[in-house]
Design a binder for these strands. Sequence first.
DNA 1: ACTTTGCGAAACCATTTAGTTGCGCTTATA
DNA 2: TATAAGCGCAACTAAATGGTTTCGCAAAGT
Lengths: 105, 105
Amino acid sequence: MRRDIFQAIADPTRRAIIALIAVQAMTPNAIAEHFETTRQAVSKHLRVLTECDLVKQEPRGREIYYLLEIDKMKEIDKWLEQFRKIWETRYGQLDQLLITLKKKK
Amino acid sequence: MRRDIFQAIADPTRRAIIALIAVQAMTPNAIAEHFETTRQAVSKHLRVLTECDLVKQEPRGREIYYLLEIDKMKEIDKWLEQFRKIWETRYGQLDQLLITLKKKK
DNA sequence: ACTTTGCGAAACCATTTAGTTGCGCTTATA
DNA sequence: TATAAGCGCAACTAAATGGTTTCGCAAAGT
């Protein structure tokens, strides 16, 4: 089963989980309490996130904390790079004015 | 059917299509020629991309050119913003958080 | 007009996916 | 030691997805 980051962030629940643990490492149960879903469902999402190295496990006693591998998020940023060049340099003449105005704000 | 950008870029072929037409607007046939797939398959991907406004149609005679809505790509960038803050302020100190939590115990 | 070409849309199939349920392992706690 | 709590994993179901094939429509060329 091929997993990559883009596939991982496609799911809104997973994006929410990512945002959650970005602030603070949490256990599956703690995460589940933030949503209207079961622990097992969360557990599955965490598995997907773990498989593509977006998330790391940290066992503490019988609890398992999950924390975000923030570096992995940079890969998305890296992919965006090619388009950032476009939206920064190649502006259509028609939009030029609009964008310029927005920037000045 | 719920469509959003993240779901759209989850597919590698769609990401490739996006990268293609980012450089230059193209017809479905032209796009299909760049991959090892049929026009219909590309057409389906274009439909998904169109549905979430990542791509725009531009009919020219009997041909339909597809062009990237570069502004829409910025939404991904916007989502990344919250994490960018993290990886800029808290470099390799992922363990910092762990230590803090441990102390609280 | 007739034919060709570029497309979208619908029907269909094989895979994948999200979510639930049940089970068993491991670590706390009484 | 017995019991409860936190988890992962496997099995199962319903729904979604990618891709192909077929059909029909519209624009160009003959």
